[in-house]
Amino acid sequence: MKLYTGTGDRGKTSLFSGERVKKSIDRIEAYGEVDELNSVIGAVISFLPAGSRDVKRELLLIQSHLLHVGAWLATTDGSHAQQQLKTLDPGEIVNVETAIDRMQGRVPKLSNFILPGGHPSAAMAHVARTVCRRAERRVITLIHQEKLQVGDDHPNAHIITFLNRLSDYLFILARYLNHSESIDDALWSG
């Protein structure tokens, strides 16, 4: 089947909930960022050193969660179509936190800021981290812009926490990958 529809050629696109909107709105910006993040994580995976099977599995799962996150962001709050979406299980945040703690326990303590870089997979994880931070900012902008009430019981409530934790995960992942490849993080000399 052909990939293109031609319905986006005039600067508009359709939300999952059916609205025709300008591609420049905050909502599109937000899920576009999540899409970018997902792609950069794909690049991290492709740079992983041999023997990183567990990390790869973890990242693939995160990519799949990010697709769900993207679908939420592409859907107007309170719309009927929202019922078709799978909510992000708060347990996934706990899984990310557990992974952070696991890697944290294996890398040397930091005495100063580090310069992002090192092994290609680690350097890419730093790129992913910064994209993740930007995605988080865009989601917050969207929530403010649309004056969404994301209380604790709101299905979108966990998205920001998830993105926030994910950027910490990507930071520690970068350090972990350098460490496991015997590359010292370059410390900032001020």
Binding site: T5, T13, F16, A71, Q84, L85, K86
Partner: peptide, 9 residues
């Protein structure tokens, strides 16, 4: 639709 949403079921 320009996003690929994962299937619910």
């Amino acid at each position: 639709m320009n996003i690929t949403a994962p299937p619910m079921e």
